[in-house]
Nucleic acid binder design. Sequence first.
DNA 1: CGGTTTGGTAAAGTGACTTGACGATACATG
DNA 2: CATGTATCGTCAAGTCACTTTACCAAACCG
Lengths: 158, 158
Amino acid sequence: MPRSNKSSAFTTSGDDGKPFGPPLIGALLRMPWDAVQQHMLTRLHGSGFADFDAAYLTVFQYPGPQGARPSELAARLRVSKQALNYLLGELERLGYLERRADPDDLRSKRIALTPRGSAAVGVIREAVGEVETAWARQLGPGRFDDLRNLLIELNGVT
Amino acid sequence: MPRSNKSSAFTTSGDDGKPFGPPLIGALLRMPWDAVQQHMLTRLHGSGFADFDAAYLTVFQYPGPQGARPSELAARLRVSKQALNYLLGELERLGYLERRADPDDLRSKRIALTPRGSAAVGVIREAVGEVETAWARQLGPGRFDDLRNLLIELNGVT
DNA sequence: CGGTTTGGTAAAGTGACTTGACGATACATG
DNA sequence: CATGTATCGTCAAGTCACTTTACCAAACCG
């Protein structure tokens, strides 16, 4: 996030004496999103990846950095290529990935996950899966599928 | 947003030759959330609040800063009180709010929105409402209500 | 070929954070 | 009442994920 995990507002208090309005759609999306993020970090830190900082999650956003060129990935993540390169340097230093020469273009590089990086990806997936399981149990499986399908449709629009 | 509009990952690419998995629940929540945030900022910047930075949205998170004490708000937002105080200083300098003495506790302050601050809150609400309207039209009104209700139930759990 | 665009990087600066320390007020206990 | 302790806001210094500016080298384009 940019700064990583900080972020934003979605609805606000009533002024003065007035009662609050109901939570609006922004807050409703943000809060479970925060919960997913938090669970991913907790599981990473407890699985041998204590050096995995919240900021690095940006790089691993769907569909992940594997095989991408730094410029392309920076554009996808909407940060400058310098900012991304800083994060890639940290991740390379910690052994999560490597920047390899691209045989097809001598100017370019390709990002390759190391075994350690792939293992971290596995933990992230597990963590997300655990959250999905917990939510499915809470809502009931059919209704969780409804939620997922509605979100997929919404993402298609956005 | 922290950092402003950047943020985090939720699912990742398949390694090497394998195909990608489907978008997981994290990504599905993050993407429309980003869209809401972006629309709020766009509307603010186009409505006389060009100096409203993305970082300030943090302070206006539901249910907003009105009447809160800085320490309490910092705890709610999970940032240090120093970090919040920095943002409050900026927002006070720009005329969005004031920190007033608390008559009940001489150590404490209370945050009060200025008219300008309340106007910005109004624009934020409008912006969220516009997004809701657009999504309701896309999904159909009944299905948008379903989405909202599922999210409310999920937030009740979290 | 020569001019322009594209990919990565180095350098310097910014701003939203952090931790540490502090004085002032509130509160709890003897 | 006195005295220790917890809490409030703030100052100061440092960190780090960014940004803008500037480059060089390779690719592409006529």
